[in-house]
C-alpha cells in the first residue's frame, strides 16, 4: 500500500509543482536573454516609454526569479505539511483515514514524497542558475563539482554533513505533521497552539544542541562526533514525534 500511496502523492506533486518549475526555468531563460542584450540597454534613451517599460519588465522578472530561487525549496516543505494536514485532518480525512492503510504508511508516503519533491526543487534551482548564467554555466558547474569532490574536506565529514541535513529536514517535516495533528485535537485557537508549540520546540532543539555541543567539547570529542551526537538526538526527537502522530491519528482523530 505504501507504493500506491507514494504513486498518488507523486501524481499530485507533478500536477501541482510542474507548472511552477516550468515557470521558474522560463524566468531563468528570460534573465539569460535579457543579459544577452545588456550592452544594448546601456545605449537606451531612458526617457522613452519603451525603455522604461523594458527596464520595469526586466526588474520584475529579476525580482520574481530572485524570490523564487530563495523560496522554491521552502515552498515544497510548506506544501508537504499543508497536504498532510488537509489529507488527514480536514474533509479529505474521511477518505484518507478510511483507506485500508496504516498511519505509518501515510506518514512514510508523505515524507518520501516530500523528500523527492525537495530534491527536485534543488535540481530545478541549479538548472535555473545554469540557464541564467549562460556562458558562465560550465565554470559554475566545474566549481560545484570541485567543491563536492575536493579532498580538502574528508568524505566522512561530507557524509556526516549530508546526514545532518537529512535529519534536520525530516525533523522539520515531522514537527509540521505533529503540529497539524495537535491542532486537529482542539476546536479553537489552532493557529496559536501550533505556533506556540512550534516556537518552543525549535527553542528546545537549539538549547539541547548547544548543550550537546558543550558536553562533547568538554569530553574532547571531535566535530564529527559532535554532529553525530546531534543527529542521534534529532533521531530520538523524530521517533517521539512519529509515535505521537500515530497515536493521534489512531485514537484522537477529530474530523468535523
Amino acid at each position: 500500500m505504501l507504493g500506491k500511496l507514494l504513486k498518488h502523492e507523486m501524481i499530485y506533486l507533478i500536477k501541482t509543482f510542474s507548472p511552477l518549475y516550468i515557470v521558474y526555468l522560463i524566468l531563468a531563460g528570460v534573465i539569460r536573454l535579457l543579459s544577452l542584450f545588456e550592452n544594448q540597454f546601456e545605449d537606451l534613451d531612458t526617457s522613452s516609454s519603451g525603455a522604461i517599460t523594458l527596464i520595469v519588465f526586466a526588474g520584475i522578472i529579476g525580482v520574481a526569479y530572485g524570490i523564487l530561487t530563495g523560496i522554491l525549496a521552502l515552498l515544497t516543505m510548506i506544501d508537504n505539511v499543508r497536504r498532510f494536514k488537509n489529507n488527514m485532518f480536514t474533509d479529505e480525512g474521511y477518505l484518507t483515514n478510511t483507506l485500508p492503510v496504516t498511519a505509518t504508511e501515510h506518514i512514510a508516503a508523505k515524507l518520501l514524497a516530500g523528500i523527492i519533491n525537495y530534491l527536485a526543487s534543488v535540481v530545478v534551482i541549479l538548472a535555473g542558475l545554469f540557464i541564467a548564467s549562460g556562458e558562465e554555466a560550465p565554470s559554475m558547474a566545474k566549481g560545484i563539482w570541485e567543491a563536492i569532490t575536493s579532498d580538502s574536506i574528508p568524505l566522512s565529514q561530507k557524509l556526516i554533513g549530508l546526514l545532518l541535513g537529512f535529519m534536520i529536514y525530516v525533523s522539520i517535516q515531522l514537527l509540521g505533521y505533529l503540529l497539524s495533528a495537535l491542532g486537529n485535537m482542539v476546536n479553537s485557537c489552532k493557529g496559536l497552539l501550533s505556533f506556540g508549540l512550534g516556537f518552543f520546540s525549535v527553542i528546545f532543539v537549539m538549547i539541547m544542541s548547544a548543550r550537546i555541543t558543550a558536553f562533547t567539547t568538554s569530553q574532547s570529542l571531535s566535530g564529527e562526533q559532535t554532529i553525530l551526537c546531534i543527529c542521534a538526538f534529532l533521531l530520538v526527537c523524530c521517533i517521539c514525534m512519529y509515535l505521537l502522530i500515530v497515536n493521534i491519528i489512531k485514537k484522537h482523530l477529530n474530523l468535523q
Binding site: 499530485y12 500536477k15 501541482t16 488537509n86 489529507n87 474533509d91 479529505e92 480525512g93 474521511y94 477518505l95 478510511t98 483507506l99 485500508p100 492503510v101 496504516t102
Partner: peptide, 19 residues
C-alpha cells in the same frame, strides 16, 4: 486496516480532493 478493506463508507461531507 482489515475491516476498512471490507467497509464502504459514505460520509455527510464531500471528501474528494478538489485538485
Amino acid at each position: 486496516t482489515e475491516t476498512k478493506a471490507i467497509v464502504s463508507y459514505l460520509p455527510e461531507r464531500t471528501y474528494i480532493p478538489k485538485w
